[in-house]
Design a protein around this nucleic acid. Sequence first.
DNA 1: GCCGTTTTCGGCCCGACTGTTTTCAGTCG
Length: 568
Amino acid sequence: MKNRQVARILYEIAELLDLEGVQFKPRAYRRAAQAVESCSTAIEELAAEGRLSELSGVGQAIAKKIEEIVQTGKLAYHEELKEKLPVDLFALTQVDGMGSKTAKLLYEELGVRSLDDLEAVAREGKIRAIKGLGEKTEDKILRGLSEARGVEKRELLGYALPLARDLCDRLMETGLFARLEPAGSLRRGRETIGDLDVLAVSAKPQEGAQAFSSLPGVEEVLAQGPKKSSVRLSGGFQVDLRIVPEESFGAALQYFTGSKSHNIRLRERAVARGYKLNEYGLFDEKNKPLAGESEEGIYVALELAYIPAELREDEGEILAAERGTLPDLLSVQQIRSDLHIHTDWSDGKASLEKMAQAARARGLSAIAITDHFRFSQAIGGLSGDDLRRQIDEIARINAELRELRLLAGVEANIARDGSIDVPNRLLKLLDFVIVAVHSHFRLSREEMTKRLIKAVETEGVHLLAHPTGRKIGERPAYEADWQAVFDHAAKAGTALEINANPIRLDLRAEHVRQAIDAGAKLAIGTDAHAPEHFDFAEFGLLTARRGWAQGKDVLNILSADALLKRLA
DNA sequence: GCCGTTTTCGGCCCGACTGTTTTCAGTCG
């Protein structure tokens, strides 16, 4: 039973209760569903350990229901509710424009129970005949069907961020906008983005909206108004443009950056003070504006320290802001090194010199050259002799360079038993030793935990790269007791990587926070295989920040000299 | 049904756009 399946049942209960006109419970079930869905631990594990109510939004009653789902695969309460409306409500409400009310109406009038039923009645033109619905609704449903059938529609941060910047550049060139800023989950640095929210100030909102709808790549205009427009790009990615008054920009940026649960907390806080908070500002009882031009002003007026966007997930940041205990997050200016680089000595695309040039152009003061060792001979892993020659070559280049220092390193393979494939006498010659898992991904939890602990405790090892092995949308993290791995890494002084490749982002934010709490150090590495991959560093930084990382937690803030001293 | 340095009881976020209507319900974020 996967987290998403459990969440699905909880979401459906929320919809069913909504239909019955039940107050407040739907919100409780939705919150619980979100918590289950976004929890990085397997729900069965939490259930087995009796830790379900640790999830915010899950109390006694829902915890019990989740246990029932995990144990029996279903939930009596859910089945009971469904008797009155025996339809696949979750799937039906995935169709754009279809909510639970429409689903109920279509079931009662036409007996629609599934997406297939829905498609059939829409094609036969039966929907437009129902009172309250019409031709446009029918068309919209037909268009929304294929999208709803598609699985996850989220895009990688590494795709969405450049796209957002390009889009804003194009809009700026029209001269119709005074300000443009991406908000939403993109601004919070989430690893995947559902849709893109762009915030704008424009003296000519109508024309601005028109320009937005006419951007190249726009396939369908979903809505177009002076305040809100919505388009779908070819490829299915949805972009929303919100045009707001200048004096409300801060409030709007706050509002549309989210997250939803962070905003709900904030608005509750406003209400508790007799205020009202919306995307136009913070207002008192008499509707007098208290803040709105800047985000900072809103937080200050609510007696909170400013909360950086990456922390706005309702994971304790509001309490920390109230107490003045927010972390001093790692900043881009603090990053001085990239600690995971490949060259054409193994499977990289560029030479040592090319990679060094690219690093220098980005202002880095140190990079670790970490080509694969011989385990990966299929992809050009180095032999012992290769590695010795590369060490000499690096020394030669270092002698010529001034601003940049190359660390001689390697990416060793962790065998099934936790041993590594680089002999000890070679390790001693190196500045920086990375170890990583490249095979045998599916060991038992116990075996994998033992394997990783043995690797991080190996003498001469500095970093465990892409520790959990997950690839977004491709494969989940290995089964392992991460707390134990992080604890042992901390004790052994072996750092844990935040691999910045957008498909990895491994450690992920939740694990970053857990690793820091365990006392482990972190290192951001782009795993660059070509010069342009140095740009991935931004995604690693965002992930570190989402994991509440401060400068002191990461090796990358050290100068080359300080880093070498520390590693030795 | 959840939650708490206002509360273990009594609260629980807010506005824009669309479509089908003649003033608003449904949906979305």
